[in-house]
Nucleic acid binder design. Structure first.
Lengths: 199, 199
DNA sequence: CTGCCGATTGACTGGTCAATCAACCGAAGG
DNA sequence: CCTTCGGTTGATTGACCAGTCAATCGGCAG
């Protein structure tokens, strides 16, 4: 093989890391577990990454930047705020449907682990809340939403509700079927948006 | 001193643990940190607890049982479902106001760390969701709430929104003043309940 | 005064892992 | 055929820390 397409060991390691992190959690995962799962020597992990943390880092940044882009894109393109929030929810739910293990890792090990690991990423996480808050604020200006709720509050409640539902599925607190899935998203968005309507 | 009231070292250790866990996070905390903070010898921690985990355990169980009792008490006593949910939110918000460090530890290290530590307590956590779901279900029967939202969904969205707001304060994503505090609770409850009203 | 016993102390051990590094392999170029 | 060089290997090191345990303290009963 040439040096170009060597099965991309780096990617291989990242994918393996997702699986192992999802299965055992970040803390309980040894670097050797990642290497084993990837079918690669221990040391190679350190050839591509400086530390175990950096692996998780990379996974988070890769995915979160997509989320940020999606929210901002939605905001730019979208029509009324209710549809925008719907699109944001859809993106997050679809991310979970598409790769539950990765989402599990990101939610459990980064977003919610705001103390240990998430601290590093508070800034990026906050940026997402702010983008959502911006949508809410626009809705208030256009009269679609009540004005007595601080946009940032609404944003965090909205995101928190979504994350909690996903956590419910992740930890099987609530059962997940494909039907539940779309319905849950619609109900969530409907409920929150109705709650945000002017009285 | 008699053997009865020896400054209750056990309590002293628990209180110290709260402070240290809140400051450094559970994983980054060494047992010696707890002992130092409590002004007590290393070994004494193991005289009262079998492991570092058991310390966190105790803190969680102590607090969570209060929450469960409060929700159920509220349900038994309360009048209309909207008031009941308001009371539940109040209890949680007040818990935070009363002892932010303890709530930080419980939320960050147990509730949201559902993978590592929380797994042990999934059952108790779920019981809280179910009690809230019961309130929602009653509201639906009485016609106060729309019927097309599964009570368990509503419950998790409700709790998730609360937890996210608290997290916002904990990690200073959003500023906290006492006024914000009560207002936030009212707005949250209002918004969710309005969202749950029949259309 | 003495012996008992639970509370308290803190040095020490065993095991775990993240991170390092020197050696190896094989493709490409001369 | 030889050299070079980046990708790859995995044994080894060094740090860290939970949990153990033998020793000490101090109140109290006999």
């Amino acid at each position: 093989m040439a040096q170009a397409p060597p099965a991309d060991k780096r990617r291989q390691i990242l994918d393996a890391a997702v699986r192992v992190f999802a299965r055992q959690g970040f803390h309980a995962t040894r670097v050797s577990d990642i290497a084993d799962e990837a079918g690669v020597a221990y040391g190679l992990v350190y050839h591509y990454f400086n530390s175990k943390d950096e692996v998780l880092n990379e996974l988070f940044v890769e995915r979160w930047s997509l989320l940020l882009a999606a929210i901002e894109e939605t905001d730019r393109a979208g029509a009324d705020p209710r549809e925008k929030l719907g699109a944001v929810a859809t993106f997050i739910f679809e991310s979970y449907r598409h790769d539950p293990e990765l989402m599990k890792v990101i939610i459990v090990e980064v977003t919610r682990a705001a103390n240990s690991f998430g601290k590093t990423h508070l800034e990026e996480i906050r940026r997402a809340y702010e983008s959502i808050a911006k949508i809410v604020a626009e809705g208030q200006e256009s009269g679609a939403f009540r004005r007595d709720v601080a946009p940032m509050f609404a944003s965090m409640a909205f995101y928190g509700a979504i994350e909690q539902l996903l956590s419910g599925w992740i930890f099987e607190t609530i059962p997940a079927s494909d039907a539940d899935f779309d319905q849950a998203r619609d109900l969530l968005v409907t409920t929150i948006c109705d709650g945000l309507e002017p009285r």
